[in-house]
Design a protein around this nucleic acid. Structure first.
Length: 661
RNA sequence: GCGCCCGUAGCUCAGCUGGAUAGAGCGUUUGGCUACGAACCAAAAGGUCGGAGGUUCGACUCCUUCCGGGCGCACCA
């Protein structure tokens, strides 16, 4: 609702400036004043015009003032300070429009492909992977079509590098350190299932072991590295026992990852795998395209002689100069590099490759199917390689290669596509010294002095995702058990689940993307203050009011339409109620901004502000004891709209509200 | 060496395209539960926004430079 009025104001000023002064301003600032007494919207436009019109800002403001007051919904316009135009809204009329759920819509048509999670399927997921998945899942929820975003179509994919070195490492561990053959691997995996042991956890330790083993004996390290390389090549080639073992392990670990993520309400539509990108010869198609357009060329001189390379973004060369910094896509031995394969994959995402995966069903979620890539798929099947815009949730340490892929698209002439290619990057997750020591890691004095300790899969050092989820839910369960002994075990467990997951999701979302998170168990397990449970609690309290009042939230909201609100929203008491409505009205504005900046943290913070606003209101106005019937109706409706929007925003963040807390 | 990111209260972080007295949470001190359940609310203390210049009517925000910290720059994926 706020956004609608804001847009109207901007449009009105725009035409006014054109008619009166023949001036156009690209970005008309309409902001929230620092204090509610100044009104609901403030325009510093007069300052900007002062110089161009050679008039004092106050005089300009005076000329604009009466014209703005004519906008429907605007109660008055005042001039403040040196020339601010402060707009006061018609509170009663605006509140009724909010109650009727009038709001600006966000977004537009087109298919948006969000890729996130993308964990190497060779060991358990850790807290850094959770940041990726929660960020990606929340962003996908923000984009997904609903009444706020009628146009958006989305697909969520999780890229699986099942033929990379990390999988090769785990295969070396299994075949050489553990001495297993294919049959043994089958037996081992069956045993793990029977003893209820997590495969990805077993691999976590094996991976750490083999990583140390490569360099444990200096006389052997060359041979052991060669073994790793040979293993990798066998896996890439396929159709052999090593590749079969790799597939068994990678698929088993992948299933575990999906289970872990489903605990956090994270689901996927499609799992494209590296093995199909190789075997369906995506790269060959991309290579031909790039060569034909002159983007990929063979280097004849310098250190990269004999390689096929691509120019980096923004590089200008004089005639005859050798581009030593060019990105190598094909090595002199003829093999393709990672960025090369990634370019092929991204051409597919935009439907520019002329090839598609085979699709097979892989996992059934309660409401939909998750598909996986195969050579020869099932029919009928969906297809995801036709995106209008893509969002890749990838660690910012991958900024460089991501830029190369984008540059390749641009150089090939797909400029529009490269502009709709968003690398949704984020800083990594480290551990605080306290948490690192708690996990049994011995720290040097140098480490202790740092703000964070880096996790290391090769050392087997980090916080495993399932361990963290277990502890979050466990801590919530302890609280629920003492607070609600009257509820049965199943219900208590459900509530603890919602709280633990809500706390975890909020904890990893509240930081903006480029903030390095130093993960600390103590901070994550806090359920007070700016946390997920705080926001959930506000929604639960609101729901309790309606249960006791004997009316539904919907009825409470509907009752506002026939109420004379004007006097009830003025004065100190009225303003404290109005402030809740004003906060509530900003949903689409915040959502729009959060999508534009790809920053779910903005919505997370807004959810907290809404909850805070509600809690404040809740203490100040005792709704059920209110004797004035009209006032009680307004207070009930206030709680109802606050709850409605809080639920909406928490839904975009993937945070459920439990039945009780 | 080159590129990108960060430096805001004791701690952890917000601060949207430059706008009014720089905001939260935690922690500290104090007050509030026979309640719409205190996973809450209220109040207080706490800041030369890393330093120095500059642009501007106006700078936490833009530019330059310096200091401090992080990450990335391979015929690894």
């Amino acid at each position: 609702m706020y956004r609608i009025l804001q847009q109207q104001l901007q449009a009105q000023i725009g035409t006014l400036l054109k008619e009166k002064y023949e001036i156009e301003i690209a970005n008309l600032v309409v902001e929230l004043p620092p204090k509610i007494e100044f009104g609901e919207m403030a325009l510093p436009v007069a300052f900007e015009l002062a110089k161009r019109l050679k008039k004092p800002p106050r005089a300009i403001a005076q000329e604009l003032q009466p014209l703005l007051a004519e906008i429907p919904g605007v109660a008055s316009v005042e001039i403040a300070g040196a020339g601010y135009l402060n707009v006061k809204l018609d509170r009663a009329a605006t509140a009724k429009r909010i109650a009727a759920d009038e709001h600006a819509t966000v977004g537009g048509a087109g298919f948006r492909l969000v890729e996130h999670t993308s964990i190497n399927p060779n060991k358990a997921a850790h807290v850094g992977h959770l940041r990726n998945a929660i960020l990606g899942d929340s962003f996908a929820r923000m984009l997904k079509a609903d009444e706020y975003k009628p146009g958006y179509e989305t697909g969520v994919q999780n890229y699986i590098d099942n033929t990379g070195v990390q999988v090769a490492d785990i295969v070396v561990a299994i075949t050489h350190l553990e001495g297993m053959k294919l049959d043994d691997v089958h037996a081992w995996m069956t045993e793990l299932i029977e003893t209820n042991t997590r495969l990805d956890y077993a691999c976590w330790d094996l991976y750490a072991n083999v990583s140390q083993w490569y360099d444990a004996d200096p006389t052997q390290s060359v041979a052991r590295k060669q073994l790793r390389l040979d293993t990798l090549h066998q896996i890439e080639a396929g159709d052999n026992e090593t590749a079969e073992i790799a597939d068994l392990i990678a698929t088993g670990v992948l299933r575990r990852h999906l289970e872990t993520m489903e605990r956090l309400a994270i689901e996927y539509d499609f799992l494209p795998r590296e093995s199909e990108i190789l075997h369906l010869k995506f790269w060959e198609a991309a290579r031909q395209l790039m060569v034909s357009k002159g983007v990929l060329y063979e280097e004849a001189e310098g250190k990269n002689k004999g390689c096929w390379v691509m120019r980096r973004a923004g590089v200008e060369l004089a005639a005859g100069e050798v581009d030593e910094d060019a990105k190598i896509l094909i090595r002199s031995n003829g093999t393709v590099t990672y960025v090369g394969k990634d370019i092929a994959y991204h051409l597919w995402k935009f439907g520019l490759l002329g090839k598609d995966f085979g699709y097979a069903k892989f996992r059934e979620y309660p409401a939909h199917t998750c598909w996986i890539s195969t050579m020869h798929g099932e029919d009928p099947h969906p297809s995801y390689g036709h995106a209008d815009a893509i969002y890749n949730v990838i660690d910012s340490r991958q900024d460089d290669p991501q830029t190369q892929v984008k540059e390749a698209l641009r150089a090939l002439g797909y400029v529009a596509e490269s502009e709709r290619y968003t690398h949704l990057n984020y800083a990594f997750v480290g551990l605080t010294a306290r948490t690192a020591e708690e996990l049994g890691y011995k720290l040097s004095d140098e480490d202790k002095a740092k703000n964070f300790i880096e996790v290391s899969g090769r050392k087997g050092f980090g916080v495993k995702a399932d361990d963290l989820i277990d502890r979050m839910i466990g801590a919530a369960k302890t609280e629920v058990d003492t607070r609600h002994p009257e509820l049965d075990e199943v219900e208590r467990a459900e509530i603890a689940d919602a709280i633990g997951v809500g706390a975890l999701r909020y904890f990893l979302l509240r930081f903006t993307r480029n903030t390095i998170i130093a993960f600390d168990y103590q901070d994550a397990l806090a359920f007070d203050g700016e946390t997920g449970p705080y926001a959930q609690y506000a929604a639960v309290r609101a729901a309790n009011i309606f249960r006791k009042a004997g009316v539904s939230a919907e009825e409470a909201i509907a009752a506002v339409a026939s109420l004379d609100l004007a006097s009830m929203l003025e004065g100190e008491e009225g303003t404290s109620v109005w402030e809740v409505w004003l906060s509530v009205s900003r949903v689409s504005q915040v959502l729009e901004q959060a999508i534009a900046t790809a920053e779910p943290a903005m919505l997370a913070r807004y959810a907290f502000v809404l909850a805070q606003q509600f809690n404040n209101f809740y203490h100040r106005h005792h709704i059920l004891n209110e004797t004035d019937a009209a006032r009680k109706t307004l207070l009930l409706a206030t709680a109802a709209v606050a709850r409605r929007e809080l639920l909406r925003v928490l839904g975009w963040l993937g945070i459920k509200v439990p039945s009780a807390m």
